[in-house]
Design a protein around this nucleic acid. Structure first.
Lengths: 133, 133
DNA sequence: CAAACCGTATTATAGAGCTAGTACAGTTTG
DNA sequence: CAAACTGTACTAGCTCTATAATACGGTTTG
């Protein structure tokens, strides 16, 4: 069963996009695998405290992207293959990294300053990771 | 006169936020300085092809943040001091860098992979920089 | 002073995102 | 079969973002 426990809804744009991103990142990290069962629209919406329609929109987008498979009446499952997963991973990483590079350059940061900042924030976050995963 | 020529409206969220961010980044980079004259709401909205109210909203937020000063009837000017500029700069950088770190960790990337990715994208972007600044 | 700007404010309209409630057909399970 | 669940679809209402069209008073400049 695909878990959405790690998903904290916040200022990450529309909720349905956050749900899509959470599954994409799980695929990229390997914590979500092909064949995994997905929670139903109703169950997940109740767990997240959002409307079922919002979850439905996320699931519909994921199905259109070929990452999950839904059949009316039955449960939904992850259907992404290795090729699709690798594509998702590189897309996610380069997308976010390009945003940072853009911001860094426009604020007049140097290459060294950029690398130092990333390294510092990486270590900083590492310390506050108390998960029993 | 503060220039907004480098501002390309796209998928960076609400337009008024993009305008705010552009001025913030200009301050952080030093290309926009205290005392600089701002284009009027009407002029800038015409140049960007957006509604004057959208620019007004951005300017209002910038004034509430103490970065610019507006006086009814007269032109608007940048009023940010060195302390405020430094605060804006660190805020912008850490904000965006935290987003990337979050994405990297959730996709199961290592520290080395993270640094390598940033370095590669940085150099990649450096090549396609043909500005005559 | 008077025209031309400026900042500021108001009302109306439209679309996107999200919520709320309901409904219906297909699948699973006892 | 029948109950319980599933995916799917629809309408209605709210907020935010953005547009459109004015309007008013203050400042600058000729």
């Amino acid at each position: 069963m695909v878990s959405f426990d790690g998903l904290r809804l916040g200022d990450g744009g529309p909720i349905y996009q956050q749900i899509v991103r959470h599954l994409q990142r799980g695929l990229a990290a390997g914590t979500i695998r092909a064949g995994d069962e997905l929670p139903s629209r109703r169950v997940l919406s109740a767990r997240l405290g959002v409307n079922p329609n919002t979850v439905q929109k996320a699931y519909r987008l994921l199905e259109e992207a070929g990452l999950i498979a839904s059949h009316a009446g039955a449960k939904s499952f992850v259907s992404a293959g290795p090729a699709e997963i690798e594509a998702v991973r590189t897309q996610l990483l380069t997308e976010e990294a390009r945003r940072l590079v853009e911001a860094l350059r426009q604020t007049g940061a140097s290459r060294e300053e950029a690398m130092a900042l990333l390294g510092r924030l990486w270590d900083e976050k590492e310390e506050t990771q108390d998960e029993t995963t």
